[in-house]
Nucleic acid binder design. Structure first.
Lengths: 144, 144
DNA sequence: CGCAATTGAGTTGTGCACAATTTAATTGTG
DNA sequence: CACAATTAAATTGTGCACAACTCAATTGCG
């Protein structure tokens, strides 16, 4: 009788569910490292290159300082990063890996493959999925 | 030098970004209805069929009472739903749409199409994407 | 029946997301 | 140089997510 949009027909719900399911699948692995999922994403960026300013981290991850500032403080209190005002521009805060933060990379290296295995879909399909999602994200971002 | 997993190669990050981008794209439309995105999802379920118990809503959406209880209280204080203990089983709380809650469905009906248009991908590709995400979510769920 | 185990909601505590605001440093322009 | 505009972080406030826990109602089993 109702012609309301059906939940299980909606792409938005599929993305919302998949994202939460993935985060949940990561949890036991990340618990071993003492990281939450967003903290892990920040560490991934820093393992690629550091130091990075808060603004650069925000651009890479699509997060603002309201999310990153407290998250980075928690990473600092875990002893994984240091935060220092940039020498040339005192507005910027640069985030450095500590030795411990750098070392954690080795223990995190196996995680992506373990998750890919758990996904139970062929690698080509996962790759295709990632590519389509990236284009969709870009399109949605262009709305503003 | 680093062989750390690259952020932009990771499917998990693509899902995380896409989900947040979609939520953000919905926001201006949902602001008109006075709903947040998770509140909209709950209303979608209720527009399909009501009343639904808190447990049923949780199963449909994959959310627990720790998320739903306060969310439903907010929907109640907006005048969109009522909550009553079930007659036969006093443990259950049944969520009913108010007249206002039912009426809101009409104003929400146009939203999915507007988002699909904004996505900028052909409908067939969006459908394929939704299907793949559903399978992935199911596989991740089966991990436990 | 009696009572332990289970089930359904709610509560508490932590950690994101994100809008809006604040504060301080820097830049651009007359 | 002065000073308005801009930029970078941090802060505040609201609302999810979710684990862990509490409490009450119900079920199942001896």
């Amino acid at each position: 009788m109702s012609n309301a949009p059906r939940l299980n027909r909606q792409l938005c719900f599929a993305m919302y569910s998949a994202s939460r399911a993935a985060t949940k699948a990561y949890r036991p692995l990340l618990d071993d490292l003492g990281l939450t999922y967003p903290q892990y994403l920040v560490m991934l960026v820093l393992w690629e290159e550091q130091p990075r300013s808060v603004r650069e981290l925000g651009e890479e991850l699509g997060l603002d300082s309201g999310t990153l500032s407290p998250l980075l403080k928690r990473l600092e209190s875990l002893g994984l990063v240091d935060r220092r005002r940039a020498a040339g521009d005192e507005r910027r805060v640069e985030v450095f890996l500590t030795d411990e933060g750098t070392a954690l990379s080795a223990r995190a290296a196996a995680i992506p493959q373990r998750l890919a295995d758990a996904a139970g879909l062929p690698p080509a399909e996962l790759d295709q999925l990632r590519e389509t999602l990236s284009r969709l994200t870009a399109a949605l971002h262009d709305l503003h």
